[in-house]
Design a protein around this nucleic acid. Structure first.
Lengths: 217, 217
DNA sequence: TTTATTGTTGAACACTGTTTACTTTTTGAA
DNA sequence: TTCAAAAAGTAAACAGTGTTCAACAATAAA
């Protein structure tokens, strides 16, 4: 009765659509939005460029799908970390660190997911209902942690969880973007970076959590 | 003796060069890097597209100059705020708030200044000596504030000023980017935003400073 | 004035996203 | 099985893009 039955035709269609997405994902991960062109993509999957427009309304639509999928993966990772039953402070720190590290693992995806959203610069302000449901959900996880921290007395009682979580998110986002765009980030010279970075992320998370804590030890 | 004497020819050359930059600045401020094309620019100043390449090696070079100029302006603004003789806590907060607000005042410049830098994604790592002297200087101002905070006993004594300043910078950067790319940022719905934003910036700055403070009141 | 240098250009190259008209293939019903 | 309709796929064109190059004009140096 319900229309869950996918006809063979539809199945084939989804398969082609997916193969486009897979090929696009490969290029995008390596070279970002700049390296991904419809024509190159068409060549890679032995189709004509116009064919792709039978599956996606525009290049932006296609890329948006890649970005959304990435953000869902990021969310899953963070959720997994958050769900363990470890001390609150640990979980909070890991939540932040995981977010940053996952962003760094797919720098092109992460940067594009935010930068791709148009800059307002004016009065038009066509608000896309908080930009995306993926981001909205990712944010809600963070807000849940702040609420928990308040209930535990770990965080200041005068915090507005929504605003505090957004402040936190901005700081996590900032570190991720910095590390993506400035290869030598924590250090000025380009020496060993790998261990440095991990430690820096932890320190950053530490500062952020401290900023919300109540002051009776 | 010294070659400071600019011949009339050189003066004329600089004038043309500057007129290109001025025209580019106007377009860039309104529409960003996407809206700025060499051909459009050439039409605006009644030159041929090829002529621009006698003054700038590439479009990237031209845009880089716009971005650097912006960052110098940003630095000047922050410096001005910082140099007054007001209580440390106030100055620190204002330093952060000014940075964010100045970034929001020129969203295309700010976003491009960071995003424009290529993503490393690999081993090449052609490190551009901490990406720019402008950014390096802007950062040094912030580090000076952390050092001062430590000396005053306001900040924890175990802070590494360089690392703490970089953590701070990342958080400032994050809020700026968030507000640039998500028009409704602090609030979910697109209601009144102007007063909300100002207050949120202040709160964010507050959290950040708190994160570095020592805990004896 | 003549040579050399610099400034400027139109035309071309190699790309880009997208649309249109057209052809081929697949599908569902008579 | 036949046949019209719907879907899939394509070549070619449109309107852009950054960039280069051979040719020509204007200026500076001899």
């Amino acid at each position: 009765m319900t229309e869950t039955a996918t006809t063979p035709a539809e199945k084939r269609r989804l398969k082609v659509r997916d193969s486009i997405l897979v090929a696009a994902e490969r290029v995008f991960a390596d070279e970002g939005e700049a390296g991904l062109s419809i024509r190159r993509l068409a060549k890679k999957i032995d189709y004509s460029p116009a064919a792709i427009y039978k599956y996606f309304a525009s290049k932006d639509d296609l890329v948006d799908e890649l970005k959304d999928a990435f953000f869902d993966r990021l969310l899953a990772q963070v959720h997994e970390i958050t769900d363990t039953s470890r001390p609150f402070a640990e979980r909070m720190g890991d939540c932040i660190a995981t977010y940053v590290k996952e962003g760094l693992a797919s720098p092109h995806h992460y940067a594009a997911a935010f930068v791709g959203t148009a800059i307002d610069t004016g009065i038009d302000s066509s608000h896309p209902e908080f930009t995306q449901r993926s981001k909205g959900r990712a944010f809600r996880v963070l807000m849940g942690m702040v609420v928990e921290g308040k209930e535990l007395g770990h965080f200041r009682s005068d915090l507005d969880p929504e605003l505090a979580a957004k402040s936190l998110w901005a700081s996590m986002h900032g570190l991720t973007m910095m590390m993506i765009h400035i290869p030598t980030y924590p250090r000025l010279s380009a020496d060993s970076d790998a261990p440095d970075r991990e430690a820096f992320i932890q320190m950053h998370a530490d500062h952020l959590v401290r900023g919300l804590e109540s002051r009776d030890e």
